[in-house]
Structures are given as C-alpha cells and as structure tokens.
C-alpha cells in the first residue's frame, strides 16, 4: 500500500488529452505514484507521448524524453549509462515505456539489446493490442480475430488471423531478473509489481493490459470491467517471473467464458453473427484454456 502523499504525488498530472476511460493514462498515474520523483522516463512515440506532452504543455513532473517510435529502450540505456558514469545512478529509476507496437514490433530489437546488456532499467509496455494512436491498425500483440483497420473482418476474414505474440516469454528468454504482467483492472497488483521492479537491479519488463475505448469499441465505463474480464477468462494471465522461472500467478477466482469478454467489444462483434463466428469464439476459448493450463491459473 502507498501513503496518501505517494498516492497524490502528482507526478503524472491532470490536464492531458487522453480519451475518457483511457486505461493507459490510469495505469501511468498508478505507476508513477510508486516510482516517485526520482525517475527519468524515455517514452516511445504513441498515444502516451501525444496526449501527455503537447508543446508547450506536459503532464510530467519528472525528467521525461520522447525520441522516436522504436528506440525508447536504447534511449533509456543511454540515460542509465550517463547516470552511471557520473555517479548519479543510485536512487534513480530509469524507465523506458511504449505501447505494444513500440515494444513488441518496431521496438523489439532495441528492447532485446537492453535486456541482453541487463541494464538497470524498468521497461513498461502498455498493451492495448493494436496501433491505437494511428487509428487502430493491427500489431503483433493484437489478439486472434480482433477487428482492426488493417485486419478488418469481411466475407473472407474474421479479423486478425493470428493470436498475440507471447511478449513476456520473449523477455524471460533473455534471463532478465524480473518480468511481470499486470492489468489496469487490478491497480494494487499493478503497483505491487512496480514496487518490486523498482527494488531490483538490472533489466525489468512489465507488461500492462490497458483496454482502449475507441480501439476496442466499448463504452468508457467498461475499461476496468474489461481489464478484469481479460484476466478472469484466462486471456490475459497475470504473473511474475524471475529469470526464466514463473514465481507467482494471479489465480482466477471465477472462470468466465470468453464470450462475456468479447461481447462487450465492437472489435469482436462480427463473431456473434453466425455459426462460423461461433467456431472462431471457440478458438479464442481454447487460447484462454491453454493459458489457464500453462500458467496454472486455477
């Protein structure tokens, strides 16, 4: 738990231009409450950069830098090196952050380099499952059968043809000291993981599921509900790993069928039209069931 002062540290301030119901801005606020003012952040191009730093305004009361789409892990690496060589690293958290595209697609090379060098950096991927900032195009973390503007549903298509890439396992394959998956639906769990990551020296990867109102096409009031359902269905397993070993998982308290999660989102509505759609929902259920078995979620 955080103190009242920490909760209201105002590091990620109000007045930014995120959509109402944006789970990413919610998560950033929660994360910055834990990381505190002794943090330097390198942020990829994407929603977060656009909605929080429209010159001359900024929502950041910490030193913050945006360079390009694919290089926040490398920029963070340079920051860490500069702090180290000038003897200022102690007590400062270096944070790299990006969306799922900036992390798992175009930015995966820089991120892999940072992991492999085990630099003392916390990298956070805000995963909303597509390129939302540019208008909802598919990414490597778009889930199976999701409609996006570049994986539309149609006579010959049920939407995105592949399941999402298991990015946390790619992080673990680097044998970095800490990998965790969290969700905007579970703020205390998210903050606990950030706190732990902050205390560990070396490269850390945290992936946060952040529902996106316009991209997933749902009512803003459902952001937290959807984030919780993603976990309770087994579609978004929350866990922690040290090096290549999973050390904790968030158990599912009440298993929910994937339909409950899918039906609230416009990006899956084409699956509810006919029998063929039903079979596709079955495939998504299989992914959830495989996750439940693989990560021992029940």
């Amino acid at each position: 738990m955080l103190t009242k002062e920490e909760t209201h540290n105002g590091i990620f301030t109000m007045g930014h231009t995120a959509c109402s119901g944006c789970a990413q801005s919610m998560s950033v606020k929660l994360i910055m409450e834990v990381l505190g003012k002794n943090t330097i952040a390198a942020t990829s191009t994407g929603c977060l950069e656009v909605f929080s730093t429209r010159y001359p305004e900024s929502s950041w009361r910490i030193p913050w830098i945006h360079s390009l789409f694919e290089n926040s892990a490398a920029v963070a690496s340079g920051i860490e090196a500069a702090l180290k060589i000038t003897g200022k690293k102690d007590g400062i958290t270096v944070l790299g952050q990006g969306g799922d595209g900036g992390t798992a697609d175009i930015g995966i090379q820089a991120l892999s380099g940072m992991f492999e060098r085990n630099q003392d950096i916390l990298y956070i991927c805000y995963d909303n499952g597509a390129y939302m900032n540019t208008g909802y195009q598919r990414s490597g973390l778009t889930p199976l059968n999701a409609y996006t503007t570049t994986s539309p549903s149609g006579k010959e298509s049920f939407g995105n043809s592949r399941p999402k890439k298991y990015m946390p396992e790619i992080a673990m394959a680097h044998r970095i000291p800490y990998t965790a998956v969290a969700s905007a639906g579970y703020p205390l769990d998210l903050q606990k993981k950030v706190k732990k990551a902050k205390s560990i020296k070396g490269a850390k990867y945290l992936q946060v599921d952040v529902p996106c109102v316009p991209g997933w096409k749902y009512e803003p009031r459902y952001s937290v509900k959807l984030a919780k359902l993603a976990v309770q269905t087994g579609l978004y397993p929350l866990f922690e790993a040290e090096y290549d070993k999973i050390i904790s998982v968030k158990k599912i308290s009440r298993k929910v069928p994937v339909e409950e999660y899918l039906k609230l989102q416009g990006r899956f509505k084409h699956l509810f039209k006919d029998e063929a759609g039903k079979a596709e929902i079955e495939k998504i259920q299989n992914i959830a069931d495989e996750n439940i078995a693989r990560y021992a979620l029940i």
Partner: peptide
C-alpha cells in the same frame, strides 16, 4: 534530464 530540475524533451 535531471531529477532536481525536470524538463520534458521531444514533445509534440
């Protein structure tokens, strides 16, 4: 980039 005197770099 300095925690004692924070600035935002590379803004929109």
């Amino acid at each position: 980039l300095d925690v004692d005197n924070p600035y935002s770099f590379g803004t929109l």
